[in-house]
Simulated assay, not measured.
Amino acid sequence: MGETIPIAVPRKGRPLECVLDRIAARLDVPTLADDVTSTLRHEKALTKGRLDAEEDVYHRLAAYSAVDDPTEPEYTLLRDDRAGKPRRIVFDSVTIPLEDGNGTEIQLVGREEPFRALRTHEFALGFDSADLVLEEVVELRPEPLNRIADVNARINPVDTDVRVVTGLGDTVYHTLMATPETAPQQAAIDRDFLEEYEGPLCIEPRYERLVQAVLGTKTLDGVDFRYPAEGREEEAAIADAGLGVYLTVTGSTAREHGLVLGEQLFPSETVLLENDSEVTDAVAAVRSALANGAPETELALPN
């Protein structure tokens, strides 16, 4: 009987979909990503009230989960943050045999905070947002942090054994944006502009440490962080402040609020993580299989 390697993954949303796509591309499970993604998108629509449910959530959960076959996806229930705190069906686990001749399997295990599960040594491998690494463990320095490939150099080994292996390429960016009144005319809205700027910079409170790491503490001299009021749309709050940083995909909402898009400061994407102190030969082989052929954000880690 071969070894089963557990891997922490997000329970729902774009990061989980990206992980499942990576698994489908690397391993022989062509239908897994579509099956799980379609189920969770349907359940999200039910939770948001876009669809009417024909059965209650417990009957749907029983229908989805094949608890007698670990190679089929299993789901679980969580309380959603929306009004009324409805129960929402999310991903729980699935076991995938590897074609390695040793009987090795990987088990994807849903976690609310995969990165923190690796930090506490529950897992050797996991997938989570690169944002969480910046928010929690990278050192703040005067110089900016520009690339995911530079993140590991900013992690103090005393703080954690977790390191980034590679990005998965599902990239959206933390983007600098400003009103025309604040932005320099015929000049770039970028880090150089911020070097000279003094005044308010609107950000989400949870991104304060991330923004400090990405921009560098030197750039933020004279900058006063402002935060959107509860219930206030982020782009609207940035328009009030005149300058801000926020995640953008197309930037259309920012433009609707009269904002001009500036420099894409740092990619927000799902990353493969490892806890270096928990890596065995079997874990290293799985890590290599999942990272093989990754985009240019892949880091040089030992096999």
Rank of each mutant, 00 (worst) to 15 (best):
D170C: 09
M1P: 15
R287N: 00
R88P: 08
D131P: 02
L290W: 07
E3H: 08
L77G: 00
V260A: 07
L20P: 03
I238F: 02
T47E: 05
N156Q: 11
D100Y: 01
D190Q: 07
G242A: 02
A187Q: 15
E233I: 11
Y207A: 07
L272M: 06
T76W: 01
A291F: 06
T39E: 09
S93V: 02
Y246T: 08
M1I: 15
T297Y: 04
V94A: 10
N292T: 10
L46T: 14
R232C: 03
P142E: 10
G49A: 07
P205F: 11
V94D: 13
L98R: 06
V94E: 00
A285Y: 07
L78N: 12
L140S: 10
Y58D: 09
K218P: 00
V260C: 04
E122C: 04
E139K: 15
L78E: 12
D128E: 11
P10L: 03
D68Y: 11
R41L: 11
V279R: 08
I155N: 09
T120K: 11
E204Y: 03
F225P: 12
E204L: 08
T31N: 05
D35Y: 00
H174P: 03
P142V: 10
N146P: 02
P144M: 06
S252T: 13
A130S: 14
L273T: 12
P205Q: 14
P97V: 11
C18I: 14
